[in-house]
Computed example of a mutant assay.
Amino acid sequence: MSQTAPRIAPLEPPYAAEIQSQFDRIMRGAPPLMLFRVIAGNVRAWEKFRAGSLLDRGPLSLREREIVIDRTCARNGCEYEWGVHVAAFAEGARLTEAQVRATVHGDAGDECWSAAEQALIAAVDALHARATLDDAEFAALSAHYDEARIFEVILLCGFYRTVSYLANGLALPLEESAARFPR
């Protein structure tokens, strides 16, 4: 994306008190991301986005969650959101440089992943390609994850596909502090 401004103008500070409070809750006091500032300019879109309730911790570990999010964003060509997540969470999720690279350029069989993580990557790839899991893919996922975690994987894939559509479709400029896709 070569644009320096998104296709829809973001909110600019000072923000309304309620919006500022919501930004503070999500960003824990850091400046709000361009994505949030653009979506928050449309009240209905912002309420629906926040109602997705997938901005919380959930039943997956940070590492599992970030593998799903990073792979989903990478598969959707969404450098914006992939880069935000890698910059903010890769270290805390203990993702190695090889694993971060594999979220973009690897596949489920890469040796850098555990068997459980390979099942996660395969599930993300299947959902991206076909919007479903076949019996073998579901069985592989079920061998490592309970029902609550499987629901979370599927929900995260759908939510971050939507985030990818928003970031890509609105041509959001990459955040300065975000990571870039490995070449």
Rank of each mutant, 00 (worst) to 15 (best):
W113K: 12
Q20V: 01
L141T: 02
A90C: 08
L155Y: 12
E117D: 02
W113G: 03
E111C: 03
Q3P: 00
G41S: 12
A9P: 02
F151T: 13
D56F: 01
T96N: 14
L54I: 04
V68F: 12
L127K: 05
L95T: 12
D24W: 07
H85N: 14
E18F: 09
T4W: 02
V38L: 10
V104K: 15
A143C: 07
A30G: 02
A98H: 15
A9R: 14
E64L: 03
R101F: 06
L170I: 06
A139C: 13
F159S: 06
A5P: 00
R180N: 00
W82F: 06
A16F: 01
R7Q: 04
E152N: 07
R50P: 00
Y160E: 00
A126D: 09
C78M: 07
G58P: 01
Y145C: 04
R44E: 14
G106V: 10
H105G: 06
E81S: 14
P182V: 08
T96L: 13
E152P: 00
V43G: 08
G41C: 12
E175V: 05
V86N: 09
E66D: 02
V68G: 08
M27L: 05
L133V: 06
D24N: 12
Y15R: 07
A136I: 13
A51N: 13
R183E: 10
L170D: 01
I121A: 12
R75V: 06
S177G: 02
I69A: 07
Y160V: 02
W46F: 15
R149M: 12
A102V: 12
D24T: 11
I150M: 15
N42Y: 13
T132S: 07
F23S: 07
P32R: 12
R101M: 08
F49K: 14
E117H: 10
I26L: 15
A131Q: 10
T162D: 00
L11I: 08
V153S: 10
I26A: 14
V43H: 15
A171D: 09
A74F: 03
N76L: 09
P31G: 11
Q20H: 07
M34D: 03
E111W: 01
A93V: 12
S53L: 06
Y80A: 04
P182H: 09
A93L: 13
S114N: 03
W113H: 08
S114I: 07
S177C: 00
A119P: 05
C157K: 09
R63A: 09
M27G: 01
D56K: 13
V86T: 15
A45G: 03
Q3D: 02
S2G: 13
T72M: 13
A119M: 13
R71N: 09
A74E: 02
V38S: 10
L55I: 02
A123M: 11
T72F: 08
M34R: 15
E79S: 09
A171Q: 11
R75M: 11
L172E: 01
P173N: 06
D110R: 08
V104D: 04
G77A: 01
A98V: 15
E47P: 01
R57C: 00
G83P: 07
A45H: 11
W46K: 14
T132W: 00
R101W: 10
E91F: 05
C157P: 02
I26R: 15
A87V: 08
R63W: 10
I67W: 11
A90Q: 06
F49S: 12
C78P: 03
T4A: 02
P10L: 11
A131S: 09
Y15E: 05
